[in-house]
Amino acid sequence: MSFLEHFKVLVVDDTTTSRMLITDALQEMGIRKISIAKDGEQALRMMMEQPCHMVISDFNMPKLDGLQLLKAIRSYGPTRTTPFILLTGKGDRQLLEAAVALGVNNFLTKPFTIPALKKAIEAIVGVLK
């Protein structure tokens, strides 16, 4: 089995259409094991039950936002080093600085293109084949 068949990604976004788009894009890249969560709280619960290899999360979400989710994931042993990509709006410099301080691995500004998403993932795990 190739790396892509094992690679488990958790997509976190409160907008259904956005989750569908990201999921479709990941499938186009050959990623097969994709879980989805509709807010940070659900994502955290899923990560505690069964950690994945990468989290791609929106920032603006109810209950637990992307930054709070990142903080929680970084403070829980088994997920302390899980790669985390944050999706943000334009011009959120303060937010990005806070995310970097919390150990974010990469970020993408919305609206992003599929090649940009692929690059953001490859910058962390290497070229997807």
Partner: peptide
């Protein structure tokens, strides 16, 4: 472009 890219733009403005 892929249609996913086009939709990404629309989703962003709706969001």
């Amino acid at each position: 472009r892929s249609s996913l890219d086009a939709q990404s733009y629309g989703v962003h403005l709706m969001e």
